[in-house]
Amino acid sequence: MNKPNAKKAKKVQKGSLAEAKMTEAGLEYKGMIMEPVVEKCEGCDRMVEAEGGSYCPSYAQPAKKWASGVCNFATHVRATVDKEGKVKINPLKASKRAARGR
Rank of each mutant, 00 (worst) to 15 (best):
E35Y: 06
K65I: 02
K83E: 14
N2D: 10
K86F: 13
A60N: 15
D45E: 15
C44H: 04
V12L: 13
L17Y: 07
K8P: 00
Q61G: 00
N5V: 11
M22Y: 04
M47D: 04
P91S: 11
P62K: 08
G52P: 10
D45L: 07
Y29Q: 08
M34V: 01
N5C: 03
A99Y: 05
H76N: 10
N72L: 09
M34Q: 14
Y55F: 14
E39V: 08
A18W: 02
H76Y: 08
A50T: 01
F73E: 06
D82L: 12
E42I: 08
V70I: 15
K93E: 07
G85Q: 10
N5T: 13
E24G: 02
G31V: 05
M34T: 03
Y59Q: 07
A99I: 04
V38T: 12
N90L: 09
E49M: 04
A98Q: 11
A74M: 06
G26H: 01
G26E: 10
A50L: 04
V81L: 12
D45K: 08
H76D: 06
C44Q: 05
D45R: 07
F73D: 07
C71L: 04
G52M: 10
V12G: 00
P36W: 09
C44W: 03
C71T: 02
M22T: 08
T75K: 14
T80L: 15
A79K: 12
K30L: 11
V81M: 12
G85E: 06
A74Q: 09
S54R: 06
K64W: 11
E24I: 03
Y29N: 10
K96L: 14
G15F: 05
K14S: 14
K86V: 15
K3V: 07
C56P: 03
Q61I: 14
I89H: 10
P4V: 03
A99L: 14
C44G: 03
G85A: 07
E49K: 12
V38H: 01
E84R: 06
P4C: 01
P4A: 02
M22A: 15
E19H: 09
G31Q: 10
M32A: 11
A50M: 07
A6P: 00
A60E: 15
C56R: 02
N90T: 03
P62N: 13
M34Y: 14
R46S: 05
E49L: 07
E51F: 10
A99S: 13
K7G: 08
N2T: 01
M32V: 05
W66P: 00
K83G: 05
R100A: 13
T23S: 13
D82G: 07
S95P: 00
M1Q: 06
D45N: 11
K7P: 03
P62G: 06
P4W: 03
G101P: 08
A50P: 01
K10M: 08
C44V: 02
G53E: 13
A20K: 04
A67D: 12
G52E: 11
L27K: 05
R78W: 05
L92G: 04
S68P: 00
K40E: 15
